[in-house]
Design a protein around this nucleic acid. Structure first.
Lengths: 187, 187
DNA sequence: CGATTCAGTCTACGAGTGTTGACTGAACGG
DNA sequence: CCGTTCAGTCAACACTCGTAGACTGAATCG
């Protein structure tokens, strides 16, 4: 019996299993939300075991926190026109296909208070930053509308799958881009 | 012991209790979503009993269906400018304070498949109707963006409570109205 | 090799859920 | 006035969930 090289070292196995669990968690949290996703279902989809999920991630809450962590947006700075361009580019990314991680956060946001706070914090911080650089005394309001528009588009496309929102990101940007620029400059 | 006039007839009592349950259900479904709202909590808030809720409404699902029924929007017809005006007026209503019924549907939509389908159906039908009357070959896309913008504003204001979106409906409409008109006319 | 660590499995517990059915007393109808 | 109906109460059931802990066998290390 050859025992010189094991199929996989322990750390490899561990990393692989954790990754499989995390992937399954993202998919299921994103598809069914926090409450309707069970540790058991995640374990099954990952070809693993509920007890193992608990041991590796501590609790369902902590697993969710890792699975739905919102990647920090790049800083948005410059003239109103530049800001509009940066926001439009960021929106293009968000409209790209199936951002499973953010999707989980988005969906859970409406039933999971902590997730809601995280999304809120992420949006608010970027929005404050943008508002400070926009002209006009309704800058806060206008940057809020930009945020609402962005959120609405992402939700409508990925979660609601609304009619007409299934166009290519380019077509969507062609319609929405000018609006964002208007809101940014205050025209 | 006077027994000629009871405090309340049976039908009165029944109606009152059903109404209390429905009110409590709307509030709790709207605040915590479908899964996190328990029949027990609804019964307690209504000053009633879980068993009674079941007997009157059949099941949690059916209670939710009654509590979160989406009121049909008025038909949207006319020239692009008129359509823009009607959509803006409808949005004004939706931005008014605490539309508990629709709020329950909106929140549940992200975790409760049936609620999602209901919201989707309501939005899609109105959107189709609007798109058919707008000029341009990207009418479907533009009316979709109007829907997304509307959804985004309502969600941002009532559910996320985003910065800047807490302005008065009039201030919001002052910013959003022109955008809707642009999208409607295709300028 | 021998002892130890650790990935992975299995079973079970305690809490909370929707739902059911028996029971009580007051309103109802004849 | 009496039998029936029904609003309201209470206790229990069946089930699912997150979680804890014992156990197994293979990888690891001195």
């Amino acid at each position: 019996m050859r025992r010189l090289k094991p199929m996989a070292t322990r750390v490899e196995q561990r990393q692989r299993t954790e990754a499989r669990i995390l992937t399954a968690a993202r998919r299921l949290f994103g598809e069914h939300g926090f409450d309707r996703t069970t540790i058991r279902a995640i374990a099954t989809e990952a070809g693993s075991d509920p007890g193992l999920v608990m041991r590796y991630f501590g609790s369902k809450e902590k697993l969710f926190a890792q699975a739905a962590a919102i990647p920090a947006d790049r800083p948005i700075e410059g003239s109103p026109e530049q800001i509009a361009r940066l926001l439009t580019a960021a929106l293009t990314d968000k409209l790209a296909d199936e951002p499973t991680a953010a999707l989980a956060a988005l969906r859970a946001m409406f039933s999971h208070p902590e997730a809601a706070e995280e999304v809120r914090a992420a949006m608010t911080s970027q929005q404050r930053q943008v508002a400070a650089q926009l002209p006009g005394d309704d800058a806060v309001l206008r940057s809020g509308v930009i945020g609402a528009l962005t959120l609405g588009l992402v939700v409508s496309r990925h979660l609601v799958r609304l009619d007409g929102l299934d166009a290519s990101p380019e077509e969507l940007i062609a319609v929405v881009g000018p609006i964002i620029e208007e809101l940014a400059t205050g025209a």
